[in-house]
């Protein structure tokens, strides 16, 4: 069974063809980069997606050496994300589904990260740390849903890194730029550290880091050290409380080596296995959507076209998982 997964929740427009046995036959992405220092403007990004969509789709089919007719199902990221961007993916998906009569599955973007993570790492029943631009949450699976054991009280880790990065002139997404600058120094400047039980709060940290941004490298270093230590602490608490024996890290920020190292260290202390999604698949991609689509297809039929919605705000812990 072959599935075409379409991702377009924010800056990335991606298509991937994945097979039921987990083989990823193709993975094509085009990322919208706003001008330096600016944030993502939803309508501009959607225009970029509209322009790139056909080529990304065609490339993904060619890479997988198949034609549209060979697809058994199509899955698209129905949310959460930016309205105009989401709609592009949905329109592409619906058009194909309707014209070629292929079953269509709306998928939750973050659950895609988690499911793909489990496929690629082999984790069975982990505590999940999801860190991206759109989410910063600690989750464990219980009674058909992913339950939240901790999250950010204001902005996400991805937004923290991105907003600071933009304030010093980088183009979004800035994670990599910050990681590179941070590696150039080891001088720590005290910044606000806010952990409230299993939750973290980053807005104070963001303002404080901006105030020392003239020392770019030290600011990046201190920002990472503080933010990642906060996440690590919240994670350690959640591990200790849930007693899970595996930790799995997914989402765009999972690509950061410093964060991975800190988390590996807690796993050692808590005697549990550490899994992190391979760097290549940490960011947004079509494969995560396709894989979750395939999993959904094992439990239910595709959605009727009129019901294929798009949702900007969509809580991960509200989705029922039947597979």
């Amino acid at each position: 069974m072959l599935c075409l997964g379409i991702e377009s929740t924010a800056h990335t427009f991606a298509c991937a063809v994945v097979e039921k046995n987990g083989k990823i036959h193709s993975d094509v992405r085009k990322i919208y980069r706003p001008p330096e220092g600016e944030g993502i403007h939803p309508r501009e990004a959607s225009r970029h997606h509209i322009e790139s969509s056909t080529k990304v789709l065609v490339d993904s089919l060619q890479q997988a050496r198949i034609k549209i007719k060979d697809l058994d199902i199509i899955a698209y990221a129905a949310g959460p994300g930016l309205g105009p961007c989401l709609r592009v993916g949905a329109v592409v998906a619906r058009s194909l589904a309707s014209y070629y009569k292929i079953p269509l599955y709306p998928v939750h973007h973050a659950i895609g990260h988690i499911d793909l993570g489990k496929l690629l790492t082999g984790a069975k029943d982990p505590l999940v740390l999801l860190v991206s631009g759109g989410h910063t949450m600690l989750l464990a699976f219980m009674k058909e849903k992913w339950r939240v054991f901790g999250e950010t009280l204001d902005i996400t880790l991805g937004q923290l890194l991105d907003q600071f990065g933009r304030s010093i002139g980088f183009a979004s997404p800035c994670g990599k730029n910050i990681e590179e600058l941070a590696a150039k120094t080891s001088t720590y400047i005290q910044l606000p550290y806010v952990v409230k039980g299993n939750d973290v709060s980053f807005s104070g940290l963001l303002s404080a880091t901006k105030s020392i941004s003239s020392q770019k490298e030290k600011a990046c270093f201190s920002l990472q050290e503080t933010a990642f230590a906060m996440i690590s602490e919240a994670t350690e608490r959640a591990l200790s409380f849930t007693k899970k024996k595996e930790l799995m890290v997914v989402g765009g920020v999972a690509a950061n080596k410093r964060l991975s190292n800190m988390l590996k260290s807690i796993c050692k202390r808590q005697n549990c296995k550490f899994y992190v999604v391979p760097q290549q698949f940490a960011g947004d991609c079509g494969a995560q959507i396709a894989w979750t689509g395939l999993l959904e297809a094992t439990a239910k039929k595709g959605s009727a076209l009129e019901n294929t919605f798009v949702r900007q705000s969509w809580r991960l812990d509200s989705v029922n998982i039947n597979y």
Binding site: A10, P42, T152, Q159, Q312, S313, R315
Partner: peptide, 8 residues
């Protein structure tokens, strides 16, 4: 809060 806020 802490939902998918619009990425500014």
């Amino acid at each position: 809060r802490g939902r998918y806020a619009t990425v500014v």
